[in-house]
Nucleic acid binder design. Structure first.
Lengths: 200, 200
DNA sequence: AATCATCTGTACTGCGCGGTATAATCCTCC
DNA sequence: GGAGGATTATACCGCGCAGTACAGATGATT
């Protein structure tokens, strides 16, 4: 609702967002009450409704934040996706992320999308756009490799990019259910091997 | 809670379960109220609490039902996974299923698992077991092919099976977010191509 | 027809939730 | 130092929700 102007206001809004992000990732948006967020973040109701119109706006803001975070974290990697080392780095980063959450969250973006995609069209579209940007980065990388002659000229770059996104999301989901990175690790390795099978 | 004994009782319980399954798949378990289920299924509260202890029990029952359904639907396919035609059939079946729901549900089992895995350990474990059985079927098929000499002897059957499960789940999730089967179709095709790259 | 368990209708309860109202502070800038 | 907006505290509201109470209907068995 109101954007914070002072330093203190920014911190308050930030605390709410960060705390909500953590809780949403663990127990979903519908499984988290506003009161819980306020208690954990040490803020009050008046503060919440000063910065957010309602819970839906919070959810969308948090989702946008998670997307922003992820894209920021991956921005460096995205630029290196024109090499095998780049894809290996991508895999390692994903696995490291899963491990750092002890496989409890899976993919915060994917989880929230899965929960709300059919009931909140804005969340669905934001997620779609996120996947699009991820795919675009992969397409850029693979295209560069193709142009440099490292990939066969008949390589289906678009389809492969979709494929990579699918594998990443699937791996994160399974690691959450299995509470283990084993299947994710195996899957990502095979994904990379498949990409390399297109070497010319 | 109480198992129904009469024919009428079975029908009532069945109506509640089927209706809940449909609603859970669309809007999640937490996004669906008991009253909504009762209204849509044309039953009353006393009937509900006659057959279920509480909402959690309903959720677990519905989840178990979805798993049972899926395994039943795939049982024939699972036995044919020792051939490329079997895997093609698997892909086609998944795509057909997504299309028949007009990409609104994704994977009912995966969606519910993603929503509740961290807060309901029983749901998480049931889902894990479901993935295990799926993987086991794939392992059986690939092992048979290996023994027949259709796959290279050094093929990583376990890892490939995990990989297939991951791709299937990822594809279903993305089709839900994108409201389209395109990326799923491309991904499944590439998955099959990768399997076939292990031909000896 | 009487019995008894199964099944069902209806009204209710209590509470947690999202959201509001109002007024009190804090901070900055003039 | 005080005016005025930004920020925060507290108390409250109404509703929808999960869950309960209890009486009534059904229907098979004897």
């Amino acid at each position: 609702m109101n954007r914070p102007t002072t330093r203190k206001g920014c911190e308050t809004r930030e605390r709410i967002m960060v705390c909500a992000a953590r809780l949403f990732a663990r127990q979903g948006a519908r499984g988290t009450s506003i009161d819980e967020i306020l208690t954990e973040s040490g803020t009050g109701k008046s503060q919440f409704y000063h910065y957010f119109r309602d819970k839906d706006e919070l959810i969308r803001s948090v989702h946008a934040l998670q997307i922003e975070r992820m894209l920021a974290l991956h921005s460096v990697i995205f630029e290196q996706l024109d090499s095998w080392e780049g894809f290996e780095l991508l895999n390692d980063t994903v696995l490291h992320l899963l491990e750092s959450q002890r496989f409890q969250d899976g993919c915060p973006i994917g989880s929230l999308a899965s929960e709300l995609a059919t009931s909140d069209e804005l969340v669905r579209m934001d997620t779609e756009q996120y996947f699009d940007r991820k795919k675009a980065a992969i397409v850029r990388g693979l295209t560069a490799m193709k142009l440099r002659g490292e990939l066969r000229p008949d390589t289906d770059v678009q389809g492969l990019a979709d494929f990579v996104v699918v594998v990443l999301q699937g791996a994160k989901l399974l690691s959450k259910v299995r509470r283990s990175a084993d299947c994710a690790q195996a899957s990502l390795r095979h994904m990379l091997l498949y990409l390399q099978a297109h070497r010319s």
